[in-house]
Write a protein that binds this DNA or RNA. Sequence first.
RNA 1: CGGGGCGUAGCGCAGUUUGGUAGCGCACUUGGUUUGGGACCAAGGGGUCGCAGGUUCGAAUCCUGUCGCCCCGACCA
Length: 483
Amino acid sequence: MAKQDKEFVKEITPQAQDYSQWYLDVILKAQMMDYSPVKGCMVIRPYGFTLWENMQQGLDRRIKETGHKNAYFPLFIPESLLQKEADHIEGFAPEVAWVTHGGNEKLAERLVVRPTSETIICEMYSRWIQSYRDLPVLINQWCSVVRWEKVTRPFLRTSEFLWQEGHTAHRNEEDAEEETLKMLEVYRDFVENDLAVPVVTGKKTDNEKFAGALRTYSIEALMSDGKALQAGTSHNLGEHFAKVFDITYLDSDGELKYVWQTSWGVSTRLIGAIIMVHGDDRGLILPPKVAPTQVILVPIAPKKVREEVLPKVAAVYEELKAAGIRIEMDDREEYSPGWKFNEWEMKGVPLRIEIGPRDLESGQAVLARRDNGEKVTVSLAELKDSVSSLLVEIQSNMFAKALAFREENTRRTDDYEEFKRIIAEKRGFVVSHWCGDSSCEQAVKEETKATIRCIPFNQEEGSGTCLRCGAKSDSLVYFARAY
RNA sequence: CGGGGCGUAGCGCAGUUUGGUAGCGCACUUGGUUUGGGACCAAGGGGUCGCAGGUUCGAAUCCUGUCGCCCCGACCA
């Protein structure tokens, strides 16, 4: 980043100086969120929430296209329900918020504010499911959940966060596994295509899997500081919950059987991923598909020509808006064009159109891309088409750029000393052989702070030797320091 | 839960060492001049200095306590 650029954004700490301060500066200055009076909770401001709404649209469409319907389950869960599944309660007990009183009266049974909804949903499924003809049950809900976190970071980990959680019930293991993988693929498709964030897909180790799950799969993304972020998870819950919640059905063979279940979710954490994958020292860079504002139109209208310029610029605004482009016009008189350029760049708007007297004389407009800073001049007649194709181009360039970064920062070694060096000095993903023993996994974590992000589906090599213990290993895994 | 940092105007800070009229920059308001990469001039408004005790003639400043927030680590979407 040129020195000149830094001067434009004196309010933002450069990434190289202090990455987490950069992150906080950006989201506050861009008005994505603000801190609330409640510790660990944040206010998602309109700019951030519009981004979330756009993300919801893209994902909700995909969830529905794969046959799921939305529903809503209660915020409160009786203590007794949460406690039914042993692993589950053990996993979540430390971070649940309790409701003990209604008004002034103490409740007969404490309620938890849902940290996730498996238990309450299972309770209902046990009532709804009788026959194999009732299966599969494919339900999703958009809601917020509460986990009393000790350490919080805006979007990445807050005490309350927004998400969607899908909960399905199936006839057998094959169907449940198919569903689990199908939804992971939905997430991959959504995150890569709409958010322009490349992900690695794979299975979680037993240590890292969801409390109460048989198997957990995840999509893992690499942030621009070299740390990994779990961007979404999909769990095959097996029959664990069905057995404790007694969710049974009469199969066609006349036998009473337990259902196989899945659950899967992504959260507002994805907003953190967008920020950290694409942002730079000048601020946010938002992917066109979900950006609250795709195009910012800045008229250059000195007083003497304002009356000529503004109506023409307004006409351009109307034309692009009618074409379905999320465009805004910044015709505020109290700010200079330069100020507006910096402001909207900081907010990550993918494309800027400048139209001033000189442009109107020659019937053109200046387009400036946020992703690479390039400026091009196009005729007003071609503007609509140029804008549309540039937005597509920006979206794919952002993905390509992020993918290139991830490739550059994914390193392959089975040499533990080299592994430690990479994790300490360069970070990023390190792909290594692992024997499958959780004590090796634990040791690597203690010694390097790197965890196994996932066992990728893509296994390009045959067997080898575990990087920590040297024993025979059949699978490569992704290691990284993670958020 | 450990370690660190911070609470003074909307934001960022100075003032605290050595007690004595609460300040600066940005933002905001009004008027005017401006507009192709963060414009300028002038005049304004805005504060129980996180909170509670204490010491003192006098506390943002010293003492005691307390609350909150942020960051970094152990656990987690």
